[in-house]
Simulated assay, not measured.
Amino acid sequence: MKLFKQVPVLAMGALILVGCSQENEVKLENYVDQASYGVGLNIGESLARDAVELNVDAIAAGISDALSGAEKRIDQETLQAAFETIREEQERKQAALNDAAAQVGADFLAENGKKEGVTTLESGLQYEVITAAAEAGAKPAATDTVSVHYHGTLTDGSVFDSSVERGTPAEFPVNRVIAGWTEALQLMSVGDKWKLYIPADLAYGAQSPSPKIPANSALVFEVELLDVKQEG
């Protein structure tokens, strides 16, 4: 969702809403009141996803003026300049966050690669064998579908996704996941459990898939290969 049609705002962070003096004055006694509140909720939830500092009272004034046909309180040139300033500020903040996350990941992997039992591949992917299969099992090809259990964290240990916690294994084609997974899975045998340390460029890079994963983050996964469903 874009905050304004004129200016896309793409940064993540905390949404700061200044104002909201009408909070205790609103009555929700009939369907018109309730539907109106629902419209406000939808607008607020959409704006919250863009994570920009906004003044709630000013938003309400803009909506009120638009619905009533009142004269605009700010000319278009001033509005456009304000949108542009917000965009520039958000881009600066996001660039700083991205750079910091990239440095944290690089530092982590540099130290992690020195640990006993950690193997670093030419791509930069690192792995550690937690449990080796009792017997050499099937290794998946890129076109195969696998069943795995996994537990994903940031380098600080913060959990962002876990099939283990959900209690249900995940199934997916090997070549339809992040590059670090695609590379590692083809080296594993059914029954293996590895810990993967994935550089940002083999994970999601600058495009974060979730607020739980900052852009340019190195990721850590415990992956257990349960089964391979070979193509054909």
Results as ranks from 00 to 15, higher is better:
Ser68Met: 14
Gln207Phe: 03
Ile86Phe: 08
Ala58Tyr: 11
Phe108Trp: 08
Leu15Gly: 13
Ala141Val: 04
Pro199Ala: 09
Glu45Gly: 00
Asp33Ser: 06
Val159Glu: 13
Ile130His: 06
Ala142Gln: 15
Ala51Trp: 03
Glu91Ala: 12
Gln186His: 05
Pro140Cys: 07
Glu165Thr: 15
Pro8Val: 04
Ser163Arg: 08
Asp161Val: 07
Ala141Gln: 10
Asn42Ala: 14
Asp156Gln: 05
Glu135Phe: 07
Glu224Val: 12
Glu165Tyr: 07
Ala60His: 00
Gly152Ile: 07
Thr155Asn: 02
Asp161Phe: 03
Thr145Met: 11
Gly232Ala: 09
Lys93Asp: 15
Asn112His: 07
Ala82Thr: 12
Ala11Trp: 08
Ile59Leu: 14
Cys20Phe: 02
Lys93Asn: 14
Cys20Thr: 01
Ala203Asp: 00
Asp33Glu: 04
Asn175Ile: 03
Lys115Leu: 08
Leu10Gly: 00
Ile43Asn: 03
Leu79Gln: 14
Leu15Ser: 15
Leu219Gln: 01
Ser208Asp: 03
Pro140Ser: 06
Lys27Asn: 07
Ser158Phe: 03
Ala179Tyr: 07
Val118His: 04
Pro173Asn: 11
Val174Glu: 04
Thr155Lys: 02
Met1His: 03
Thr78Ser: 08
Ala136Ile: 11
Val118Cys: 01
Arg49His: 06
Leu97Gly: 10
Ala132Gly: 10
Arg87Thr: 00
